[in-house]
Simulated assay, not measured.
Amino acid sequence: MKERPILFSAPMVRALRAGTKTQTRRVVKDRHIDAAPPACFFQWLRERCPYGQTGDRLWVRETWQHSNFPLGPYDESCTVFYRADYMDDPHGPDGEKSPEGRYRNWEPSIHMFRSASRILLEVTAVRVERLQDISAADAVAEGIARDGDGYERFHVDPDAPVGQSFTRNPVLAYRGLWESINGVGAWDKNPWVWVIEFKRVEGGAS
């Protein structure tokens, strides 16, 4: 069993903690993949997934800060703060809506230390497919946000207020999520993606 880091945005961290996200898709970066390879190539590619294989573990990196900041470096005795926990703050997660303006100084997720991570995932399956081949059930497993007024409605725009800009098509909602992360038009490129399925296990900070 190997452990590897993996980055998630604050909304996806919230979905992980709520148990609504059990899959993630990441673009395959292999120059041979678009040559319509035979099935054996997909097996070869799957075995080289940079996020591991079944049974391996992924520790989540997220936007964070520590109690020694700004007077000293992080150490394992620090209290750790996570941006995902401030998404519902009326002043905004960065304090941008407060009278003082931006007053929270976050560390990017890429700089998170293993000991500061609070979420540990175990890989349960890995496969390769085209992005647009995602099923409705898999779109839901990606942790797309549900509309507050109905279980079967999902946000097309992840930043839209509850009750606005929603759809009953989870794939369309996932398209909105994908483009919010990868840019407008990223869905239409229909890249090959790693599909990593996982479950939460003990071993994070909390």
Rank of each mutant, 00 (worst) to 15 (best):
H111R: 15
G95R: 09
A125T: 03
L120N: 05
D133I: 00
G92W: 09
H91R: 04
V126R: 09
F81L: 09
G92P: 06
T124N: 10
D88Q: 07
P108D: 01
F113L: 08
P108G: 01
Y86L: 09
A136D: 15
Y86K: 13
R83A: 11
D133M: 10
V126D: 08
M112V: 00
R102P: 02
S115Y: 04
D85W: 03
S98W: 01
D94A: 06
H91P: 00
R127L: 12
N105Y: 15
D133Q: 14
Y86S: 09
N105T: 13
R127E: 14
M112C: 03
E122Y: 01
L131E: 12
A125L: 05
Y74H: 07
M112S: 01
S98K: 02
Y82P: 08
W106S: 01
I110N: 00
H111N: 14
S77R: 13
D85N: 11
S109V: 02
E76A: 14
E96I: 00
R130C: 11
V126A: 13
S115V: 05
D138Y: 00
P70Q: 05
E129M: 12
S109N: 10
P70N: 03
G72H: 01
L131I: 09
T79Y: 07
A116K: 08
A125F: 09
I119P: 08
G72Q: 02
G92Y: 13
P70V: 01
E100T: 03
V128W: 09
Y86W: 13
D75I: 00
Y86Q: 10
R114L: 12
D94V: 01
E96Y: 04
D89A: 12
P93H: 10
S77C: 01
K97W: 12
E96P: 02
D133V: 08
A84E: 07
P90A: 07
S115R: 14
A116R: 11
I119V: 15
E76P: 06
G101M: 05
S115Q: 11
V126H: 10
P73C: 00
F69K: 10
V80Q: 02
E107H: 11
L120R: 10
S117Q: 12
T124M: 07
T124P: 07
I110A: 03
L121Y: 05
E76R: 12
V80E: 03
S117A: 14
R102Q: 05
A139K: 06
G95N: 12
E122S: 05
H111V: 01
F113A: 13
K97A: 07
A139L: 01
F69S: 04
T124E: 09
S77E: 12
Q132C: 14
L120T: 08
D88W: 08
C78K: 06
A116N: 06
I119R: 06
S98C: 02
K97N: 13
D88S: 11
L120E: 12
T124V: 12
D133H: 15
T79H: 12
Q132M: 15
F113Y: 15
S117G: 08
E96A: 07
R104L: 14
R127D: 15
E122R: 14
P90Q: 06
V126N: 09
F69W: 14
C78G: 08
